[in-house]
Design a binder for these strands. Structure first.
Lengths: 331, 331
DNA sequence: CTGTTAGCGCATTCAC
DNA sequence: GTGAATGCGCTAACAG
């Protein structure tokens, strides 16, 4: 039946024009006499012709595809980023090629270098430290990076993690908490920033900070580290978690251990994933605007691709989401 | 500097061989004399040559890319499917091009038809009814569909929704529930199957089923419909939700309304999303094996692409996840 | 084993 | 306005 799909040549022949004319007409690069245009249109319709995007891409060098690299697509923070990025891309006629590095940075460089040849630009979320990322600037495609960069001349979209963490700590302090702990994830580049924000707040009050470190930013790790935190010799009266997933895991296990939240310990997180609102009690957190960040990064990248000038750093302001229930006032 | 990337011709010239030789060597299609191979290798290294995947794809017709179309990537059910599919794809050297139809089927056909030209095969999750899907069989690329199909000759991967729902209903019945309600989502093709499973169980006992219908399979809809369910004239003693998201939304609002779960009403869901385990009480649900389904679908598709024979239908067995806390025994 | 020769389907000069 | 010619970077016969 349809052994070989019709090519632009078939259309040209059927419409009694040249392939060049058909090409220009299809791409709207030029107008033609009504007679010719009608002939082309009916030839296209008659043959059911569809331009071959692969051939087109090879010629133009543009694929209308954007690569997006995230650390773990099942983490709601990243699904939301993807959601926002995908929506913008779709609206502007682009597709998203996803890379889920699954927290394993070993093949990240090769993967991204290969990816770069198949897309018009990429958006990258990575755990790599800045000094091991210089190769990214040598990739011959527009790139937008998530997180702030001190040296590398790459456009970035970042949340104000330091500020968000500071807000969280201030909030806890104002409610009277004195023994604050941080359940962090030191492998992340943002961990330092959050830690910095917390420290800035606590130092001003001369408060100590107890630190626990997770192996992964996951529900399971929050669960696992719970007992060490609440059954240690000096139980904190408030815990700031690296993200909401860890906070949820922690809360569940605390409940199993007979610890009441927030009576025995207040808990707060980062990200504002949807599920934090649906636990009991509901989780106080910092909204990092994941979906908006994804959308912003995509908008920025598409602007770069179009040759427009963009700011190096786009900062998305965090918002403290107060759900009083995981946080109590201390005497 | 690197104005034009080196082509296979540059390599051939530098190694004093023909482009055909370089091509075959790169693709491992043939071995050559050590001298030639060494020359090619050093030429490649010297020039920093990378094969242009676009040109290669145009020739071979293979892109090493799989299209995956889902309904809403922020739904954990779908992120898990994507996770499983992506892992298998990655292991076999394929990338995933994601399409998030966002529950809007209007442009679905065009989107998928366009997508089909850029990938080697696709995996599709859709709300479309079977009779409006015949065009899918005419797409000239391997396609694996999620869900069971009565007529269409498409390979599919499906969960046993009927069976899972039956298990759920049986479980509730055996614990003494008599007034069971279903919070469904009739726009979904799987809604009927789940309803069928529930009915099969209840009919055997001569029990009625109250049905509520959501506009979307979301947290917010579960929340919204809660009051109508629990504050109606005949409050059910158990509620089966179309999915876990709706169940979580329902549970939260029920708690706000002063309704205790499971004392006042038992709640169960579908999917076994990770967050169901972390609510209080933890949610009893049917595990549909999302990640495995994604992996299975990808394996099946890659087999088809390789020309291997595959079963029309691959069924993934559901598993009841008992978390006693959302379900009570009735007198 | 290695090279020659054709294209793949399309966009793009540059003529007319 | 329109078309003939050229080539993108690569692979696929077919020769030798």
């Amino acid at each position: 039946m349809k052994k070989t799909a019709p090519t632009i040549r078939d259309v040209a022949a059927a419409a009694h024009v040249s392939t060049a004319t058909v090409s220009k007409f299809i791409n709207g690069a030029q107008r033609f006499s009504p007679k010719v245009e009608a002939a082309i249109e009916s030839a296209i319709a008659g043959l059911g012709y569809k331009s071959n995007p692969l051939a087109k891409s090879m010629i133009t060098g543009r694929t209308n595809t954007i690569g997006l690299s995230v650390l773990d697509i099942t983490n709601p923070h990243f699904s939301s980023i993807l959601k926002g990025a995908n929506r913008v891309a779709h609206d502007q006629g682009f597709s998203v090629l996803l890379v889920d590095t699954e927290e394993t940075p070993s093949r990240e460089r090769r993967t991204l270098e290969e990816l770069s040849r198949r897309v018009d630009g990429m958006i990258v979320f990575s755990r790599m430290r800045e000094h091991e990322m210089t190769w990214m600037t040598e990739i011959d495609k527009p790139l937008v990076f998530f997180g702030s960069l001190a040296q590398l001349p790459l456009p970035t979209v970042a949340s104000d993690d330091h500020g968000g963490a500071y807000m969280l700590a201030q909030h806890l302090r104002m409610l009277g908490h004195r023994r604050i702990a941080y359940l962090g994830f030191s492998k992340s580049r943002r961990d330092e920033e959050r830690l910095g924000g917390i420290r800035e707040s606590l130092n001003a009050a001369g408060l100590e900070l107890a630190i626990f470190d997770a192996e992964a930013p996951s529900l399971a790790e929050g669960e696992r580290l719970c007992s060490a935190i609440v059954l240690g010799s000096q139980r904190p009266d408030a815990l700031i978690c690296y993200n909401d997933l860890m906070a949820l895991g922690f809360m569940k296990e605390a409940s199993n251990l007979g610890i009441s939240i927030p009576q025995d310990i207040s808990v707060v997180g980062f990200d504002n994933i949807p599920y934090g609102k649906y636990t009991t009690p509901a989780l106080t957190t910092v909204d990092l605007q994941s979906e908006r960040m994804g959308a912003t990064a995509m908008e920025k990248l598409l602007a770069v691709i179009r040759g427009q000038h963009v700011e190096k750093l786009t900062k998305v302001a965090p918002q403290l989401i107060l759900r009083a229930s995981t946080v109590a006032r201390r005497p």
